[in-house]
Nucleic acid binder design. Sequence first.
DNA 1: TTTTTTGCAAATACTTTGCATAACG
DNA 2: CGTTATGCAAAGTATTTGCAAAAAA
Lengths: 149, 149
Amino acid sequence: MNKIVSDERIQQRLSYFEDRCKQLGLRVTHQRKEIYRTVASSCEHPCAERVLQQVREKLPNVSLDTVYRTLASLEEMGLLRRVGLSVKEHFDGDLRPHGHFVCTQCGEIYDIFFKENESMELPACMNEVGQVRQTQVQFKGICKMCQSR
Amino acid sequence: MNKIVSDERIQQRLSYFEDRCKQLGLRVTHQRKEIYRTVASSCEHPCAERVLQQVREKLPNVSLDTVYRTLASLEEMGLLRRVGLSVKEHFDGDLRPHGHFVCTQCGEIYDIFFKENESMELPACMNEVGQVRQTQVQFKGICKMCQSR
DNA sequence: TTTTTTGCAAATACTTTGCATAACG
DNA sequence: CGTTATGCAAAGTATTTGCAAAAAA
């Protein structure tokens, strides 16, 4: 398994997860707990299918759609993040260094030009990981348009 | 239409596009040209379907799969970028501020912890765009593993 | 003329949804 | 017991692929 997170830390997180569930009136089911445990103790940024595999080692009958539903609610609960953006691919012909603001409500993508971006240096540890071809900064949130509704 | 890019600039880009095609032995077809023109002159980060719509205003018979194929080759040619990550969604239970390195060959995602990330301030223009909930820095490139093959 | 690219159609991959049953609190 | 969450099956969306015909060089 791919586990660098300590058991102790996972326990902490699980109990926080249970508290949050109670706070929000969500039920603490075996499936939710196992799905959250999997994501919280994984270092591999698993996709839904991969989460399912891991969860099924303990709960063999869990279905993929439960995994999707649960991952979505864990995200809403603020217990995990989605790496990346949206289901669709989006393309950008503007090659100047710039970032993007993505509205999580309407999906709109806005260009963000800012100085820090242009002069951004690669972190030192980058050498050990690989050769960087491009850097993108993404901001997620709610855009003005959606706010004023 | 969504055009802020000047005609002059688009012409420049199109002729660079043709040069690159010749350099690489790729044919300059109407479809490729129109697809590139669309992405290069758009400010809306279009998805494939949206590119198709625009392209069809000039070339009504272009098909969606050609758009996909062409966008992929334009990316390889270094003429456009994919906003986001990969087709699949990936989830991350680690909420500490950190970035990701994504290998464009094998798809592996590596965590990148670095000081600059923790202290990163939001660009001033952000106020005009929306309320930021989270910030993610993404690096794309080829990882060590893939390099040594 | 030769080779690449296209369009069509179909397959594949990923994610979401409706509904009856099961399980939490 | 009442209500929410799950599993199943099916639908919905996005992307990719094989192949014959069309078009570029």
